[in-house]
Amino acid sequence: MPLPAKAFQRWLHGIAPQASTADICRISGVKRTTLAQQLVRGKVAESTVVSISRAFNINPVAALATFENYSELAASPVLPSAAELVSQIATMDLLKAVIARSAGAAGRGGTDAPEHAPPLTPAPHATSVKNWVDAIDDGELRHRVSTATGIAPQNYSAQLTANRLTPELAIATSREAGVGLTGGLVATGMITEAEAGWPPGARQAALDALTDGELAALAGERLQALGKTLKRQEQDHEQTKTIWENLG
């Protein structure tokens, strides 16, 4: 939910009382026209607050928590579960881990994780949002989020398919799942792992903790999902091509 412009201006005055709008935009990288339009509409995007808070060395989570809509973020952070951490590992990184373990096992005669794993791609990744929701879903999560927020199930699913969630929905999803409130913000790319308070190397540790069987099964599931997505894209491309050919 966008933030009230008046509350935003009070927050902005509190962190940079002497700075002009031009200064704020120059330092934060927010376009002046974008900020002006948001202020005129009376609704400022959460991403604007995040960009400005980073520019002034303020944790974005703490900045958002000063607004009534996101006051819940002021509570002590809850660490992500292993399933959440693994959900934020890109499919290609899972495949690299499978290969690295196989190569290491062949060389050592064992199945332990390699000593020097390749660095993981920073979150988020191409399917991070849907993977995160799947990781915390007990089978009824989507229904509870729909009931709590009023969003139609098909609209919620459409956002997941597009690998996005509004900040408000991301936090509502966390709340209904009973997990830390910042997990969805990381999955959507609103904030970083460090800003959410995730321990350094947490995703790598969660990956290393997977057994060879668990890793292989997860990589296989991701590949299957990727294959379905690519096939749909190919079909859509062919349909579009056919339409243009028929139009001459």
Score class of each variant (00 low, 15 high):
A90I: 01
A90G: 02
A90K: 00
T91Y: 00
T91G: 02
T91F: 03
T91D: 11
T91M: 02
M92D: 15
M92G: 00
M92N: 01
D93Y: 01
D93Q: 01
L94D: 02
L94P: 00
L94R: 04
L94N: 04
L95E: 00
L95P: 00
L95Q: 02
K96L: 10
K96P: 00
K96T: 05
A97F: 07
A97L: 09
A97R: 10
A97M: 13
A97K: 03
A97I: 00
A97D: 01
A97C: 08
V98L: 11
V98D: 01
V98M: 12
V98I: 14
V98S: 04
I99K: 08
I99V: 15
I99A: 12
I99F: 09
A100H: 05
A100P: 02
R101K: 10
R101I: 01
S102N: 10
S102P: 03
S102I: 11
S102C: 09
A103T: 00
A103V: 09
A103E: 08
A103G: 07
A103S: 06
A103L: 11
A103M: 07
G104P: 03
A105I: 05
A105L: 06
A105G: 15
A105Q: 10
A106D: 05
A106V: 05
A106H: 00
A106K: 04
G107E: 15
G107P: 02
G107H: 11
G107Q: 15
G107L: 15
R108G: 05
R108D: 07
R108Q: 11
R108H: 06
G109Q: 10
G109K: 12
G109W: 13
G109C: 13
G110V: 11
G110M: 09
G110L: 11
G110I: 12
T111H: 12
T111L: 13
T111C: 08
T111D: 15
T111I: 11
D112F: 12
D112L: 13
D112Q: 15
D112I: 03
D112P: 01
D112K: 13
D112S: 14
A113V: 07
A113M: 05
A113E: 04
A113K: 07
P114E: 05
P114C: 14
P114W: 03
E115H: 05
E115R: 04
E115G: 01
E115C: 00
E115V: 03
E115F: 02
E115I: 04
E115M: 02
H116V: 14
H116F: 11
H116T: 14
H116Y: 10
H116W: 09
A117L: 06
A117D: 07
P118G: 12
P118W: 01
P118S: 14
P118Q: 06
P119S: 14
P119L: 10
P119N: 14
P119R: 13
P119Q: 09
P119W: 07
P119Y: 07
L120T: 04
L120R: 00
L120C: 08
T121I: 09
T121A: 12
P122Y: 07
A123N: 03
A123K: 07
A123Q: 09
A123I: 06
P124R: 07
P124H: 11
P124C: 14
P124D: 10
H125C: 08
H125P: 06
H125R: 08
H125D: 09
A126D: 14
A126K: 14
A126W: 06
A126F: 08
A126M: 10
T127H: 13
T127N: 14
T127Y: 08
T127E: 15
T127P: 03
S128H: 06
S128P: 10
S128D: 05
S128Y: 06
